[in-house]
Nucleic acid binder design. Structure first.
Length: 266
DNA sequence: GCGACAG
DNA sequence: ATCTTGTCGC
């Protein structure tokens, strides 16, 4: 028998309707109007660039990381963790976790809708208490502009928080003609010149992000893209400087601690 | 039609 | 995301 009408996106486990997708698309489009893809902050990356203590310019000191882990047997039970690290020492100076229920399904291209509620909750807690370690910049375990509509979770969360954000993916989101093999070729070519990151230019000609070999031990690259209020060049620099291992510390610590917290409290 | 598809 | 042990190497 035939299904009439247009609502035929019938995967058995597809919890969201076509209407939900339309709403999601509208929300992404709406939030994207506020997106800033250039450096827009009042601090600087390096301590000794200039001597301008009087101009209100500060140094980047508190950098946040956010991640979510899910329960093994209860897929809707999750733990969101927000950490803040000292940018210079990479010590964790703040940590907060929260067990939550997440029933929003994971749909490629709409990751932010799963993560936003916990993220906002954790960040608001710091904001409301005027916490001295409130992050100046956040790293998100997902893509920013490296996204089908140029608005991945790092952009989404960045706009919600009105904070500079950087997107970091461990796997390539195939978009705009970008493939793993293509990325591999680009990296291998550049590695010969002692450059370990390459811009990711899609078929459209746009630069969606960068692939980079973050630590010497890993052949597998990570994917950095602009989230909000940060240029790609700055994003890459920050990521490089926070990588003790393949995954930059803010995200790695958030990942480790969220999984840890979930194991203990569930 | 088939494969791909961040976390 | 999660399922999963050992193992090779510095």
């Amino acid at each position: 028998m035939e299904m009439e009408g247009s609502s035929t996106s019938s995967s058995t486990f597809h919890l969201s309707s076509d209407d939900d997708h339309k709403k999601w698309l509208e929300i992404q489009g709406s939030l994207k109007r506020k997106l800033i893809t250039e450096d827009d902050y009042n601090w600087k990356l390096r301590e000794s660039e200039e001597e301008e203590e009087s101009s209100g310019v500060q140094v980047l000191k508190y950098i946040g990381g956010f991640d979510i882990s899910f329960s093994k047997h209860h897929p809707s039970v999750a733990c969101g963790t927000l950490v803040v690290l000292d940018f210079k020492t990479l010590d964790v100076v703040y940590e907060d976790s929260s067990i939550v229920t997440i029933d929003v399904p994971y749909v490629p291209g709409f990751l932010a809708f799963r993560e936003a509620p916990v993220f906002v909750q954790l960040l608001k807690k710091m904001q409301d208490s005027s916490h001295p370690f409130y992050p100046q910049l956040l790293m998100i375990d997902g893509n920013g502009t490296l996204h089908p509509r140029g608005f991945g979770s790092a952009c989404h969360l960045g706009v919600l928080a009105d904070l500079p954000t950087i997107g970091v993916g461990k796997n390539l989101h195939h978009v705009d003609g970008l493939t793993n093999s293509r990325v591999r070729e680009l990296l291998e070519a550049e590695d010969n010149f002692n450059v370990y990151f390459v811009p990711l230019v899609g078929d459209s000609g746009n630069t969606l992000g960068a692939a980079l070999h973050s630590s010497k031990g890993s052949f597998k690259p990570i994917f950095v893209s602009v989230g909000h209020r940060v240029s790609l060049a700055s994003a890459v620099e920050v990521v490089k400087r926070t990588c003790k291992y393949r995954v930059p510390e803010p995200i790695r610590q958030a990942d480790i601690r969220s999984r840890d917290y979930l194991r203990k409290h569930h």
